[in-house]
């Protein structure tokens, strides 16, 4: 899933200042799972904004909505009746959802209520960890299912680097060395011969080096 962090309330207040009709828009997908932008969090943020305006003696209307997916035009368009009466939308979806909303609603400013951080998974309730950077050329088959691009601080493909010590990364003793994890797993899989092979120099053109990326599935695209 895409993992995000809620922006500080003061920052959101600073952005919506001057507006009297504010819509907080959530998303039922990733941000709901990572507990930052679902119906529940929309309600909490809207309440906090209402309380702020009340304390300031300002009369303002703060609405709430949660789209099925803000990253899908079908649902974004479908929210027109809800969105257009407002002066500004605070999107607590990821950066994709926030942009899809902005692209659809020309006359309503759409601002982010979260900082989109990474693609990852939940280790346990309330703890999410990065697992993928979408480099466009997956190496997991060769690295025992552990991604050096997302989990090594230096994206080393022939690791570990000199900063690895006893299984930990130089950036923090709380961060596992991805390459130690890879080596340990290759070893337990009986595949250490994979480690002995030099990884070919990576083609980053499938990453951001090639500019903004598109995927078109010909058989379903109209």
């Amino acid at each position: 899933m895409i993992v995000a962090n809620g922006k500080p309330l003061e920052e959101i207040i600073g952005v919506v200042k001057g507006h009297r009709k504010i819509l907080v828009a959530g998303c039922n997908e990733c941000v709901t799972v990572c507990e930052v932008g679902g119906t529940k969090e929309v309600g909490i943020l809207a309440s906090a904004l209402r309380l702020h305006f009340l304390n300031q003696g300002v009369e303002a209307q703060v609405g709430e909505t949660t789209l099925q997916r803000q990253c899908d035009r079908e649902y974004v368009v479908g929210a027109r009746v809800t969105v257009e009466p407002y002066e500004i939308v605070v999107s607590v979806a990821c950066g994709v959802g926030c942009q899809f909303m902005a692209e659809e609603y020309n006359k309503v400013p759409v601002v982010p209520g979260v900082d989109t951080s990474f693609m990852g998974g939940a280790l346990e309730r309330g703890v999410w960890s990065e697992r993928c950077q979408g480099c466009g050329t997956c190496l997991l088959a060769k690295t025992a299912g552990i991604c050096p691009v997302s989990r090594c601080a230096k994206r080393v493909l022939n690791g570990p680097c000199g900063g690895s010590t006893k299984g930990k990364c130089e950036i923090s003793k709380d961060v596992d060395c991805a390459w130690q994890l890879i080596v340990d797993r290759l070893s337990s899989l009986g595949r250490m011969e994979d480690y002995e092979v030099l990884t070919p120099i990576k083609d980053w053109s499938t990453d951001r080096a090639g500019g903004p990326r598109m995927r078109i599935k010909e058989e379903v695209a109209s």
Binding site: N158, P160, C161, G162, S164, T165, K166, G167, Q180, V183, D184, S187, M192, Y195, E196, L198
Partner: peptide, 17 residues
């Protein structure tokens, strides 16, 4: 980075690369 990895065999593999 001698002594940093789990086993000498792993370090030798890294050296060989």
């Amino acid at each position: 980075n001698t002594g940093a990895m789990g086993t000498v065999q792993q370090e030798l593999a890294a050296l060989d690369k």
